[in-house]
């Protein structure tokens, strides 16, 4: 009876105007839809994101979730002007550093070199935070990593493969045994 009532509510919706709209990812396929970024930035951001959140068995990585596209949209629309400047300056610096140190683009680096670059960014952040007093603006990589993790774990790929996504639990249990499974997505 309970289930039937629930299903009938759903069918009202399915018959009405609430069917899901087309997925919004279409605009990300354009080469550089955001004026603050350049052609090629999607690939670069995806490659950095993939180094942080790589593909693992049964779970695509950040690149497959197009986190690089999401970062550009999020930085453009949702960042405050202060964070946006930190991000864009840091991003430009990073590109210049890679060019200086390797003479090629991040994408063409070996896996070990990519890890070195990201390790360097982690170290810079640690250094930045060691010296930070309250009110110190965030470090570029901190913003980048936050947005990568947010973008990935709220993407369809991340939420449904790296985590367990149960849109309609149907019930709640206070205590269930835990044996190393993935976390719930929400």
């Amino acid at each position: 009876m309970k289930r039937r009532a629930a299903l009938s509510s759903l069918s009202v919706i399915a018959g009405g105007s609430l069917l899901l709209p087309p997925v919004l990812s279409g605009c990300e396929t354009a080469d550089h839809p955001y004026a603050l970024f350049n052609r090629g930035d999607t690939q670069l951001l995806n490659d950095i994101a993939e180094t942080i959140i790589p593909e693992t068995p049964g779970s695509p990585g950040a690149k497959a979730a197009n986190v690089g596209g999401f970062i550009q949209r999020y930085v453009t629309n949702c960042f405050s002007p202060i964070d946006q400047k930190i991000f864009l300056d840091g991003f430009a610096n990073l590109k210049a550093e890679i060019d200086k140190n390797f003479g090629k683009r991040f994408t063409s680096l070996s896996s070990a070199e990519k890890v070195d670059v990201v390790r360097g960014l982690e170290n810079q952040r640690t250094e930045h935070q060691r010296n930070a007093i309250p009110g110190t603006p965030p470090n570029f990589y901190h913003l980048l990593k936050s947005t990568i993790l947010f973008g990935y774990f709220t993407s369809e790929q991340g939420a449904t493969t790296a985590l367990r996504y149960v849109p309609v639990p149907g019930e709640q249990k206070g205590i269930i045994p835990y044996n190393g499974e993935k976390a719930w997505a929400l």
Binding site: L18, L20, N77
Partner: peptide, 24 residues
């Protein structure tokens, strides 16, 4: 009720900014 709940069944990734509001 029901008719005017346009986001009720959306997934996190269905929102342009994953449910965060634009800075503007």
């Amino acid at each position: 009720h029901l008719e005017d709940y346009p986001t009720a069944l959306k997934n996190p990734w269905d929102f342009e900014h994953r449910n965060q509001m634009p800075h503007q």
